[in-house]
Amino acid sequence: MGAAAATEGTSDVTQYEAAARAPAAPAPIAAVHVPAADLPGARAMFATLGERAAAQAVALRPPPAEPTTCCGRGCNGCVWEGFYAAAEWWRQDALEALQAAAPAVAPPG
């Protein structure tokens, strides 16, 4: 059995399902400044912003729930697309809340 035969059955896995199965990686600081492109990135972004909010005593709404109903067929309008759109909205909302709570820095003068 060749390498092609060994991977034949894996073509049904969508990029979203593959991302959902990947382990979560630690979030680099820049991860909160760009939209999440995969589930580990979204989880890292939620964790990083949650930690920042806790450190600044800022209350954030809960991040969106991860989809559980993906059929894996690559549908137009997949539940993962909605999740990433909601995650981006949550990210922007969280960054605004953190910025509003940050102490004002007086300009040098």
Rank of each mutant, 00 (worst) to 15 (best):
A57G: 13
M45G: 04
Q92N: 12
A97P: 07
Q99N: 10
T48I: 08
A87Y: 06
Q56A: 15
P67N: 07
A85C: 07
E81L: 09
C78D: 09
L39V: 14
C78N: 11
D93M: 01
W89H: 12
A59L: 06
A85D: 14
C71Q: 10
G72K: 01
P40C: 08
V58S: 11
L39H: 04
A87L: 06
W90Y: 07
A100R: 04
G82I: 13
T48R: 05
T68R: 15
L39G: 00
W90S: 12
P40T: 05
Q56K: 09
R43W: 12
R73D: 14
L60D: 03
L98S: 01
L98T: 00
E51Y: 00
W89D: 15
C75M: 06
A57S: 13
A55L: 13
A94L: 10
Q99P: 01
A57W: 07
L49H: 03
V58F: 15
R73F: 15
W89N: 12
E88N: 08
A97H: 08
E96C: 04
D38T: 07
R43N: 07
E66W: 10
R61M: 09
R61D: 10
A85T: 15
C71E: 15
R43V: 15
V58R: 06
E51M: 09
A101Y: 12
T48C: 03
A42C: 05
A47G: 07
A59N: 05
P62K: 03
G50D: 09
A54W: 00
Q99W: 05
E81F: 12
A44R: 09
E51R: 10
G50T: 08
A54D: 08
L95I: 00
A37Y: 02
G82P: 13
R61P: 11
T69G: 13
G72M: 08
E88L: 00
G41K: 02
E51P: 02
P67I: 03
G77L: 02
E88D: 11
Q92G: 13
Q99T: 02
D93P: 05
G41Y: 00
E66I: 08
G82H: 13
A59G: 05
E96D: 07
C78V: 09
Q92I: 06
D38Y: 03
Q92H: 06
